[in-house]
Amino acid sequence: MKEIRKHYHEAIAEIDREVLKMGAHVEESVGKAMSALVNQDTSLAEQVLAGDEVINRFEQQIQDRLTVLIATEQPVAGELRHIITSLKVISQLERMGDHSVHIAKAAVKIAQEKFIKSLIDLPKMAEYGMKMVHEVLTAFSDRDKDKAISVAQLDDRIDELHNQVWRELLTYMMADVSTINQATTLLFVSRWLERFGDHATNISEWVVYDSTGEHIELNL
């Protein structure tokens, strides 16, 4: 059977690619923010702040294009779910970008200080976060719910590391009150990375919804 509404299906495929590009920016932003923190590199931190505007613009443009598609094409069933999913995914990505910004600002804040400890777990958390964005967006573009569910398991690693960092920093603070300022900053960074993983997990849930129309809870 001959395909009809080709223009519409091409528009959806093109928007998918835009979502992937937005995701690539988010992946890069958290990586750079972590790098800025570890290397105390304020100019890299500035790049993250500027990059967030690009991410925000992606969100608005994709949202506007999806809105026009809803208005003009009256999508139903799988296509409607995919459009709703896309809207949800970009808003999660936008918030993930904001967490990168928070981390970059923290990097600037403590850029002149001597570290109270070497940073090992935080970069690991960021790496898991980057892997999650990358893979969950692959699942999104392939409409692959099984992959989305398996990606969400990485969030457990991040949560474990977050708890570990928290316990560790608490010990430092109890031992030496002069570490409190930096320790709380690092604790916040850990918390933002933990939230970053939660948002990626939310995307997994939306990818499952895209395929099945069902809402499942992966953030346990």
Binding site: I4, R5, Y8, H9, E73, V76, A77, G78, R81, G213
Partner: peptide
């Protein structure tokens, strides 16, 4: 039928992929 049809052919038709 309009949100989550069981049959692929229904989905293709209501989405305007043939007709």
């Amino acid at each position: 039928i309009f949100f989550n049809p069981s049959d692929k052919r229904t989905e293709a038709y209501i989405s305007g992929r043939f007709g």
